Amino acid sequence: MKIYYFALASLLAVSSCAKRPDAIVPADIPMAAYTGSSCSDLARELVKEQENLAALSKAQNQAATGDAVGVFLIGVPTSSTFGGDKEGQVAVAKGKVQAIQNAMRSKRCSAG
């Protein structure tokens, strides 16, 4: 019976670990949110959102590493437990980048 509880606790701890940024699916952000903007505005917004995504991805990688270490050492995903998981924010930032890129393609904006 003890083994059952240990296995269940281990499964719950591992399943609640922070994901790596590349494993996070982008949120569905409608391209229409950006189609009213000019190409130059879109280019500025894209750079801003890519920088935001890079910062969030770095924090998410640190959370995933912290969770792996925490689970290995004490059996608890410490980063996720204490609010370090940025999965939702990474998903939104990825979705915004995709929506801006799609809006730029539809307007035939130059990439550089």
Rank of each mutant, 00 (worst) to 15 (best):
F6Y: 07
P30M: 05
G112F: 04
A23I: 03
V69I: 15
Q62P: 01
A111E: 11
L73S: 12
A13Y: 10
T78F: 10
Q101N: 07
G95H: 11
V71C: 11
A54C: 09
P30K: 01
K94V: 08
N102Q: 12
S38M: 04
S10M: 12
A91N: 02
L73F: 14
Y34E: 03
I100Q: 10
T35R: 08
A68W: 15
E49Q: 15
I3A: 00
A33G: 07
Y4D: 12
P30W: 02
N61S: 14
A111Q: 13
S37K: 15
Y4T: 04
T81M: 14
D22A: 02
Q50N: 04
M31V: 12
M104F: 06
A23P: 03
A43M: 03
A9H: 05
L42A: 08
D67T: 03
A103Y: 15
M1C: 02
K2R: 01
N52M: 08
K58F: 03
C39Q: 06
L42E: 09
S79R: 06
Q60D: 10
Q89I: 01
A32Y: 00
I74S: 04
S80L: 06
E51H: 11
Q89D: 07
E45V: 06
P26S: 03
A93V: 02
A43K: 15
G70Y: 10
E49M: 09
Q60S: 09
V76Y: 15
Q89E: 09
I24W: 05
G70H: 13
S79E: 15
V47P: 00
A32H: 00
I100V: 11
Q98V: 11
L8A: 05
V14M: 02
S16C: 11
S110A: 11
D67H: 02
K48D: 10
D22K: 15
D22L: 11
C109K: 10
G70T: 11
Q50I: 00
G88C: 01
D67M: 05
G112C: 03
S110T: 15
T35A: 04
Q98T: 09
V71R: 05
R105H: 13
G88W: 07
R20W: 14
A7G: 01
C39T: 07
R44H: 07
A27W: 00
G95N: 08
P26A: 08
D28P: 00
R44F: 11
L56A: 10
G83M: 03
L8K: 12
C109S: 06
V14H: 00
K96P: 12
F72I: 12
Q101M: 08
G112V: 03
D67Y: 06
V76D: 07
L42Y: 09
A55K: 14
L11C: 07
N52H: 05
S79G: 04
V97I: 08
Q62C: 05
A54L: 10
S16R: 10
V69L: 15
S37D: 12
S38I: 08
G66F: 12
A91L: 07
Y5C: 01
I29S: 02
A68Q: 08
V76F: 15
V71E: 14
G84Y: 06
N102L: 10
N61Y: 06
N102S: 14
S10A: 13
V76R: 09
V97K: 08
Q98C: 01
I3F: 00
D67R: 06
A93D: 05
Q62I: 13
